[in-house]
Design a protein around this nucleic acid. Structure first.
Lengths: 408, 408
DNA sequence: GGCGTATTTGTGAAAATTCACAAATTAGTC
DNA sequence: GACTAATTTGTGAATTTTCACAAATACGCC
């Protein structure tokens, strides 16, 4: 019957626990939460490896190490079993030989304990120590989680306040943010991720690793997840680098979500970068507008992420209103539509594909599965019927805009 | 000393005068105003030619006859001399041999008297009769002109009312129009002709023959002439045929004006066709907007006449407002502008010419007098600097629109 | 002056576009 | 079924576009 290593006292401090484990194993120990942020590390040992050093300095496991361990299937092991996992040395990422165990409650993983093997190799006896250590850590994690939950609630409340309120007093908002320990160095922006079918909560879970890695705050609203994104290193970040960062973030996030839900169900939009918390609302509105536009024009706006590059689609709603007010209709397109209806042709589609491919005939023809001469014939026909000249930039613009407007 | 043929009585009626001349000359006589509208014709004679017959039936000299007489220099003769002009037969236009004289007061020409030579040839004695007849006609013309002036004044007043007032009661307007004998069968439209330098009055004079031929009412406002244009045959005219008619009218008018003042000084715009007098204002506003836009974008809108085909330029002012309100700027173009400034390049111009020629590289290159590979290099550079993709329709339209917006 | 970078021009080959013309196909009408 | 008109596809040649690569030129900087 095994010894009860952690029976004597309830550990009130997680660092204390780390020290106790370290002493028992006679090796350096670190404890991380589920997002690999450093929670505690044993203090007594002097010798360590590059990976542990970086983790402590950065208060988080380096990305490089994490991705490598993912690739090597270490985490998959940790997820699927209760026992410690022995990991051989991986020189390329500065990771010495070590043992890891997941801290779990039921099927949930709360965090990890890592033990190096620098002073002595770890035996199966040590595995038992780690098993018990993982159990002993659970109450500490739950306690921590409780605090965090409450704080998260207040943070989310504040985020909604930023998104919806129309504020005047920037300094008041800054104070609130500071009280909630939310660092939001400008510039930042608001992004909306909208999924047709699943609940936002599921989405958040999916994105969780990403949300943690970059400086992102989030709230959920029905099928939407709303993100506030800023750079970790505030000072050196201008609008351009923020957009780059978001691009990168979205690329990863998007592929994850699309894998799960299918591209046609996912809509992502970002408002413009803003400098003040007061302007959060503006950025949020823009992100919302983007999502709406992308639902209406999924194909045309598929590759768009940033509000500033919405181009025509930024104007479309306004143009629709103006046209309504003026009683404007594009007579050429009207005639074309009538012609299509009367003759069961599809000149309208032909025109749209043509315009969507900036007038490249071979691309258009192959897209429509027609002979290139057929296309050329149809285009001539379209010019005759509409009275527009496809070689005139303004006529092209009119047709493109009015064509898209017809879809509203 | 010559006989005073018309001394005995003041002719109160112009038809009476025509009959007296006809009897003296023993030949058919017609009297026309300066615009060749029939005012009177002698009644006694039975034999006549095709030209006279058409003139009487159409209450105006046929266009065919007029243009031929212009070409043959007959009118030039009539303008430059006080004596009658003898005109040989012109079979092709059904014009028999005749004599014509201008009715003048000082240097102004008020109208014409025509005498055919069907019953007997006209001698120099008859020329004297015509000279005296022309003199005798002057008071009748002045009297007529006086009436017309007053009526014209009331008509112009009414036109301004249509253009500027915001009316509710269509039937009231119709009544007024009827009282002024202004037939305005719908559809009609308002057009504005704007000349940079000369006074509108001069312009009206230049256009006078055209104004008379088609159903056009006009008023002058500073450097602008405002026209209300409708079809003579109201019932059969729909919007499309009206636009065609206007095209034709403008083609002729435009060439006349451009010949005189140079293309860069002339701006013509037409509002949309409307069905009710109440809507005149709308059409007028559109015509005004067109003229304004054409001043701002003379090259781009040179060939545009109808409001409905303004395309992008119809939206530009609105878009400008929206952008201002949103604080939107096209960052790509901003970068390009900065780049041009720092490196004394002209990528901006390159881009504009490229877009103005719907992406045809050879046209663009020749327009810019550069090698085609230079152009291709610059375009690649433009894409790099702006971050826009010239093969993306939305990007293209954004650049096109925002480029033109920069000029406002 | 020399150096490196940005820009322009040249060459040539593959691919795409334009155009005219002919043949085949389709659809509607009598 | 035969006829007509509209549409589609095919062929071929002249022109244009695209692309890669090399050489020449321009410009700022040390």
């Amino acid at each position: 019957m095994p010894h009860g290593y952690f029976d004597q006292h309830q550990h009130s401090d997680i660092n204390e626990l780390a020290d106790v484990i370290g002493e028992l194993l006679q090796n350096p120990v670190t404890i991380e939460d589920m997002d690999h942020r450093l929670l505690a590390y044993s203090s007594h040992s002097e010798s360590t490896d590059q990976a542990r050093w970086s983790t402590i300095m950065g208060r988080r496991v380096p990305e490089k190490v994490l991705t490598r361990l993912w690739k090597d299937g270490v985490f998959q092991h940790l997820f699927s079993q209760v026992d410690p996992v022995h990991i051989p040395e991986k020189v390329e990422i500065g990771l010495g030989q070590r043992v890891a165990i997941a801290i779990r409650r039921g099927s949930d993983i709360l965090g990890y304990i890592w033990a190096q093997e620098v002073n002595r190799p770890l035996t199966s006896e040590d595995d038992e120590i780690l098993r018990q250590a993982a159990k002993a850590a659970v109450p500490l994690f739950l306690q921590r989680q409780g605090k965090r939950k409450a704080e998260e609630g207040r943070r989310k409340e504040f985020l909604w306040e930023l998104l919806l309120g129309s504020h005047r007093d920037e300094s008041l908002l800054l104070q609130k943010a500071a009280k909630l320990q939310m660092e939001i160095p400008p510039p930042f922006l608001i992004s909306v991720v909208d999924i047709t079918e699943p609940q936002g909560e599921q989405l958040t879970q999916l994105l969780y690793p990403l949300l943690m890695r970059d400086k992102v705050y989030n709230v959920t609203d029905g099928s939407q997840v709303i993100l506030l994104i800023c750079s970790r290193k505030g000072g050196q970040c201008n609008d351009g680098t923020l957009l780059q960062l978001v691009d990168q973030f979205m690329e990863e996030a998007f592929s994850k979500i699309v894998d799960k839900f299918g591209e046609e169900n996912v809509f992502v939009g970002c408002g413009r970068p803003v400098q003040t918390l007061t302007d959060s609302r503006q950025s949020y509105q823009e992100a919302l507008q983007m999502v709406q536009v992308k639902r209406q024009f999924p194909r045309e706006t598929r590759h768009l992420i940033h509000y500033n590059k919405l181009g025509l689609y930024r104007m479309l709603a306004h143009m629709h209103l103006i046209n309504d007010a003026q009683g404007y209709t594009n007579e050429g397109l009207g005639k074309l539509l009538a012609y299509d209806r009367e003759n069961q042709t599809n000149l309208m589609e032909t025109l749209e594909v043509f315009l969507d491919h900036v007038g490249k005939v071979n691309v258009t023809a192959s897209q429509l599965h027609i002979h290139i001469n057929t296309l050329s014939y149809r285009l001539k026909r379209i010019e005759e019927i509409t009275g527009y000249n496809l070689d005139d930039p303004n006529d092209r613009f009119s047709l493109y805009a009015d064509l898209k407007l017809l879809k509203i």
